[in-house]
Write a protein that binds this DNA or RNA. Structure first.
Lengths: 204, 204
DNA sequence: TATTATAATGACTTTATAGTCATAAGTCAA
DNA sequence: TTGACTTATGACTATAAAGTCATTATAATA
């Protein structure tokens, strides 16, 4: 690597670092090229010497956030023998990685779930609705725990969110794969699938 | 209700309907007040006679999308006796409702998962990364099925997405509730929690 | 040191879109 | 029919932020 290249890469990296920091602090929706230049201590035009455009910055921020994650996890997981051990390691390593890149993932995840076009106050009412739903489920879970059917170490509210996320993931999966109109039977079988996975997961 | 009120409400509803339609077709990020007025066949100023501002429109669109969902589900669920039956019914009714409001939920869900600030092409590479990860998990699941440990009716890829969504939901839950820095032990116990739920869910 | 090449600057241009408001059209009671 | 009131219009304004480019500063080279 020549020195020029190294300087160029350093600047690239330092701009990227500023971008990550800003996005981690204020989210994607408040991220502007002016703020970026300002935070990096350079002129706006300079940013465009290192990045094609704003999208290019965002893409690199995301790329850097997920950089290494996959390789590191795959490496750890491949060292395990049984499917169960692999899954246990995968979950742990994933949580660890998320925690190591806490500010980045916090923003990405919260931005993902917050219908970012809404004003703060409307986002709150949206999240409140979600929470109310999770609380409704948590009452059912609590009852199951009290009756001794469900694992007694479950966090009922968190379990409620888990179930919601399974349902949503199922819907998204089917939105993306099923071009065809899906009928009542398909819905029924999908519901049973989620039910069997979730119930066995929470049952004693 | 006087006739004026009824007219006003009809117009309110018809604008809302246009908004839902547009958002369902093009997503939140492409939704503009000009398009809305145009689609509703009225002048832009008229929209502002029925809605305070854009946020007010969006809020009403979301509200209308989730309208009745909760009450309807709660009603059905409350008719069931055991926690297990309640959960089965809840899942089915939820999937049914999502399907009945397919276009609305499709947009909301996909917008949620698509880092909307990215250009289409960058979103695709982002989704590809997610898919690659799910595929990695699906290989583990397949192995578990082959070995007879896991339920043989599992869709491995979908199960991969399920696990990712559980991990993510856990992270979000902890981001929102744990103000404190969380240490390695907490991460370990969270990982074990997810592991126990997921493994029992997929195991025979 | 002088000349050329490279990097950086930031004022300016462009664009998109939210929101406004003077004007016009429509409605209805007296 | 008139005039007061309500509703609707869309050209216009305001604003935010992306992206540009002529100019200037810095570094490399002869």
């Amino acid at each position: 690597m020549t020195e020029e290249e190294s300087i160029k890469i350093n600047k690239f990296d330092s701009i990227l670092k500023s971008a990550r920091k800003l996005i981690g602090e204020e989210g994607f929706s408040n991220f502007t090229m002016d703020k970026l230049a300002n935070n990096a201590g350079i002129a706006k035009g300079t940013v465009y010497l290192y990045f094609k455009n704003k999208n290019d910055v965002l893409e690199n921020v995301l790329k850097s956030g997920f950089q290494n994650m996959f390789e590191r996890m795959a490496h750890k997981v491949n060292n395990e023998k049984t499917p169960e051990e692999k899954i246990r390691t995968l979950i742990y390593e994933n949580l660890l990685y998320i925690n190591e890149n806490k500010y980045f993932f916090k923003t990405v995840f919260l931005d993902e779930m917050n219908v970012v076009f809404l004003k703060k106050t409307s986002q709150e009412s949206y999240n409140l609705r979600r929470k109310k739903y999770a609380e409704f489920i948590s009452e059912i879970i609590k009852k199951g725990i009290d009756e001794g059917i469900f694992k007694n170490w479950l966090n009922p509210l968190k379990s409620g969110f888990y179930l919601i996320s399974l349902i949503k993931t199922n819907a998204i999966y089917n939105f993306k794969t099923n071009a065809v109109e899906f009928d009542e039977n398909l819905i029924k079988s999908e519901a049973i699938e989620i039910y069997n996975i979730f119930i066995d997961g929470v049952k004693n």
